[in-house]
Nucleic acid binder design. Structure first.
Length: 291
DNA sequence: GGCCAGGCGCGTA
DNA sequence: TACGCGCATGGC
């Protein structure tokens, strides 16, 4: 077995913030690097000044899969320039220059976020890890490294019983994940074709899946399909909008939804991720970074 | 020990 | 359309 390595020049790319920011759940910090599985490849990423180094366990001839996953060709300056010029966005960008959006595989992203409802990010990581251990096929790792698994296929989870899923700590989410996997396995929704659709029809397709509401649909539309105006409204973002844009007022959810669609411009999804990260990491009395 | 977590689905009004 | 509630589980 021969490992492979590569080096990518990057500007304004905060790898640690990006991989730990609650959009993907399979990255583990190991010393000064990040280890994870992308598709069926184990990979170790390391940030160095002006570059990201990558190492795999098996030979790699073409690194486009990783360039795509990390969105290395996106010019962050162009995206930040599209943000509204207001104080909350300035603070959010100031708190973390280099936060990026990944481009994840749709099924893994969808399944992970079905597991996410009323869970903290650390718990989502744990659930996803258990699903991979139990239902994913093993992938090659470097000699002496810990075993690693791919994310389970649709078919494998469609065959899993609700009880087996509950053993992965899914709780009341287990029937949702099972039902969605089965629906996809039957071909009732084709995730591969959603990228051909405009935002609204793509969202409608996702909303037809059990356990998928507007918030989870928007996470998948943003993190897996790259719709730049998908804007997941979760508890953190609702808190952010209330505190930062409507202080001392009591906007209703309908007002916040309208605001989220109209205020943040052509890259509102990215803006949302900056707000999310800002709210989770800014100092709160007596607390460190939320997990 | 109580509150809350990158919600959803369903019943009521 | 707009709330309220139950649903498992664990971190803090």
């Amino acid at each position: 077995m021969t490992s492979s390595s590569a080096s990518f020049a990057v500007e304004h790319y905060d790898l640690a913030a990006t991989l730990s920011s609650g959009q993907a759940f399979r990255w583990r910090q190991v010393e000064d690097a990040w280890e994870g599985v992308v598709g069926s490849r184990w990979v170790r990423l390391c940030q160095e000044p002006g570059r990201i180094r990558a190492r795999t366990a098996e030979p790699v001839a073409d690194w486009n899969w990783l360039r795509h996953y990390l969105q290395l060709d996106v010019r962050l300056e162009d995206i930040l320039a599209a943000f509204p010029d207001d104080e909350p966005m300035r603070q959010s960008v100031e708190s973390c220059r280099g936060l990026r959006l990944l481009r994840q595989e749709p099924w893994e992203c969808l399944a992970s976020f079905i597991c996410s409802s009323t869970k903290q990010i650390t718990q989502i990581r744990q659930i996803v890890a258990l699903l991979c251990q139990r239902f994913g096929h093993t992938v090659a790792v470097p000699n002496g490294g810990a075993a690693a698994c791919a994310f389970p296929t649709v078919q494998r989870l469609a065959e899993a019983s609700e009880a087996e899923l509950r053993q992965c700590k899914l709780g009341f989410r287990a029937p949702y994940l099972a039902a969605t996997a089965r629906k996809l396995a039957r071909g009732e929704v084709d995730l591969a074709r959603l990228s051909e659709l405009p935002l609204e029809p793509a969202r409608e397709q996702l909303l037809a899946l059990p356990g998928v509401g507007v918030k989870i649909a928007d996470c998948v539309l943003l993190f897996a399909y790259g719709f730049p105006q998908a804007f997941p409204l979760d508890v953190w973002i609702i808190k952010a909008l209330r505190q930062l844009y409507f202080p001392n007022r009591r906007p209703k959810m309908a007002r916040l939804r309208r605001f989220s669609r109209t205020h943040f411009g052509s890259q509102s999804g990215y803006a949302q991720q900056y707000l999310f990260h800002y709210m989770r990491t800014k100092r709160r009395p007596g607390k460190e970074v939320a997990s």
